[in-house]
């Protein structure tokens, strides 16, 4: 039997973390309830006490906890991010997921025993960048941006001496992550600093005669006809009319589902598989984790991946294999 790829699963609340662990997560990633993590939504995330209790729960069940501190500190407010790293280590985190060069340097210097992963927010997408982070800051694992093909991932793995982790399910960010400022143009707030793409206080919905209009910062960015699936209210999945043509300018609303590529990703040298969705419910977490745990066990045993049953959970109720097998239009 081949070595099983590690399943890294999302948790936005302690209840979701427990659901992930019970469903078979090898590791769970989560963050503090502030701007230090890139899923800074109302009612979501962990207090210091909740994190320590949740890590203890995960460890009792043989699962690891990775703490995402993956936004970019504001100048003059670095202490908030430094304290997050120190508190994650004190709570017993198995690793921190970081993106900012300064925070990586601080963590390597002041918390040398704390394992460091590079967040997708750092957008390290080639061997030179990865080797720089590994050699300079002792980063052990790299979450690769969702813009690479399987062949490109295999090529990267041949030229680095570190683990790679790739997204296999959930919301699909089609931009160079950590660099995208689309949300900022409309709302004045950025996923990279504030931890929110399309902050909900700038989002509103209006249903008229069955058609659902989604507005961001007062701009209508999508209109779903009666009965049609609705997408997240993000500009990159917005539907616009220009010169008489209406369409999705950047990407169709669809979720990533790479379950059929797991064997290829294993052959490409990928160490860990990441499920997106810290903003989702414990119902989502439980169902997706169970499905992918069965899939990675099948891959490790050389069996076919069981057919997926997750279509109802996908954005726009549509799935794509994303860039892994991309044919650009």
């Amino acid at each position: 039997m081949a070595e099983m790829m590690e399943l890294v699963c999302p948790a936005g609340t302690p209840a979701a973390l427990r659901a992930a662990v019970e469903a078979g997560a090898h590791a769970v990633y989560c963050g503090f309830a502030d701007e230090t993590n890139a899923r800074n939504f109302p009612g979501l995330n962990f207090s210091r006490v909740e994190l320590a209790e949740s890590i203890a729960h995960a460890h009792r069940h043989g699962a690891k906890v990775l703490v995402a501190i993956n936004t970019f500190p504001r100048a003059g407010a670095e202490e908030t991010w430094h304290r997050a790293v120190a508190d994650a280590e004190a709570a017993g985190a198995d690793a921190v997921i970081l993106a900012d060069l300064g925070l990586l340097a601080h963590t390597a210097e002041h918390h040398p025993g704390l394992r460091r992963h590079l967040s997708v927010q750092a957008a390290a997408a080639n061997p030179d960048a990865i080797n720089f982070y590994a050699e300079t800051f002792g980063v052990r694992r790299f979450v690769l941006p969702r813009v690479l093909t399987v062949a490109e991932i295999a090529a990267i793995n041949r030229e680095i001496d570190a683990e790679t982790e790739v997204f296999v399910f959930g919301g699909l960010c089609v931009m160079a992550e950590g660099r995208c400022s689309l949300s900022s143009y409309v709302t004045g707030r950025s996923p990279n600093v504030d931890g929110v793409c399309s902050p909900p206080d700038h989002v509103s919905y209006e249903e008229t005669d069955g058609a659902l209009a989604a507005r961001l910062g007062g701009f209508t960015i999508h209109r779903s006809p009666k009965g049609a699936p609705a997408p997240y209210p993000t500009l990159c999945k917005g539907c616009f009319t220009s010169e008489g043509v209406t369409g999705h300018v950047f990407e169709d609303p669809a979720s990533l589902d790479a379950s059929e590529l797991l064997s290829a990703l294993a052959d490409a040298g990928v160490r860990a598989l990441k499920i997106e969705g810290r903003q989702r419910s414990r119902a989502y977490v439980g169902q997706v984790v169970r499905s992918f745990r069965a899939a990675v066990e099948a891959v490790a045993a050389g069996r076919p991946v069981p057919p997926g049953t997750l279509a109802a959970l996908t954005e726009g109720q549509a799935a794509t294999s994303g860039a892994y097998a991309k044919t650009w239009r």
Binding site: L212, Q279, S281, R282, T314
Partner: peptide
């Protein structure tokens, strides 16, 4: 915890 809120939103079952 029987349903996911986002999934209900995507399917237009939740407004």
């Amino acid at each position: 915890g029987a349903y996911d809120g986002d999934a209900l939103f995507f399917s237009r079952d939740l407004v």
